[in-house]
Design a binder for these strands. Structure first.
Ligand SMILES: [Mn+2]
Ligand SMILES: [Mn+2]
Ligand SMILES: [Zn+2]
Ligand SMILES: [Zn+2]
Lengths: 156, 156
DNA sequence: ATCCATCTTCAAGTGAATTGCAAATAGAGT
DNA sequence: ACTCTATTTGCAATTCACTTGAAGATGGAT
């Protein structure tokens, strides 16, 4: 009783992701292994903000005993393909998220329950560009994290 | 021939820093050791954006063979005293900087030469507060890093 | 001068992430 | 379908920044 792994992808809104991944693999003479398919499939199912260890645990619970190194290598492959971003937190942990082209967001992070809320603010983006220009920098990317208490964690 | 270690402090613009540190030590029944004095003195001399390992090397070159653990413990003490901030970068490294009260800045970081430029932008700060409020978050702190090429590293 | 809580040192430990290498496998070429 | 080999996997060992345990040293209160 074989499990079908790829077929799901056509039912998710991630067609573009799978296509881009296939392209990347072909272009770089990389292989489409069972491990990669399952890891990517479960990565997408956990979206957004996936922790490598959590993804590893999920795979384990679903009966896929892949090595943790394989999970990391797959996530790094997706990063190299520019399909995911890695958000490194100051405590040394990091999470991965789908890098949606033509869209950008920053993060509000609850210092109490660690919940993460995404937001977009065009005004801030424009001001960032202005600042960079003022100092003669070309702006390649940025990282804006706002830390505070979420509504559920507000002290009375 | 003893070296004078503390006297320098009265000649620097960091009187307030030394006073605040002395206060903190006294209030918490902590001791003023030779190691702490020298480490803080050289930390201030390297300002801004001090890497723990670099500080350790500097001390070593000046003839102070303190343990790296002592350097880290002293920097953590300064953090606990709210006298320095730690900026953790995504590569796992981090730098420490004096936490100047009543002033705040963010960072422009050159992706080519790693130079760090500080900037302030009141408009961005205000917008951050607005975003947090919009999502019902209390805003405790934030981190904004802009990445790009500095003028010296601009491709022709 | 005594005393003891705090410190320093050095080595060992931590934890996320990477890497080396032998065995397995995808998939191109025949 | 079978071969061939570059790529991949699994597992253990390793790395890197940083922290911690423990035993002897020291600041500073009395
Ligand atoms: Mn996100
Ligand atoms: Mn700074
Ligand atoms: Zn919360
Ligand atoms: Zn530069």
């Amino acid at each position: 009783m074989n499990k079908k792994v790829q077929s799901n992808s056509d039912e998710t809104p991630y067609k573009w992701f799978w296509r881009a991944l296939d392209d990347y693999l072909v272009k770089n003479s990389l292989k489409q292994t069972k491990q990669r398919k399952v890891i990517v499939q479960e990565f997408l199912a956990m979206n957004p903000h996936v922790d490598a260890e959590q993804l590893f645990e999920r795979l384990r619970k679903m009966g896929y005993y892949f090595g943790l190194a394989t999970v990391y290598r797959t996530l790094n492959l997706l990063k190299d393909a520019n399909l995911v971003d890695q958000l490194a937190f100051s405590d040394g942990r990091s999470v991965f998220e789908v890098n949606t082209p033509d869209s950008h967001h920053d993060h509000l992070i609850c210092t109490h329950c660690r919940k993460v809320v995404e937001f977009e603010n065009e005004e801030i983006e424009k001001l960032q560009l202005k600042v960079a220009q003022h100092y003669g920098f070309s702006l390649e990317s940025h990282r804006l994290d706002l830390f505070g208490r979420c509504p559920d964690c507000m002290p009375v």
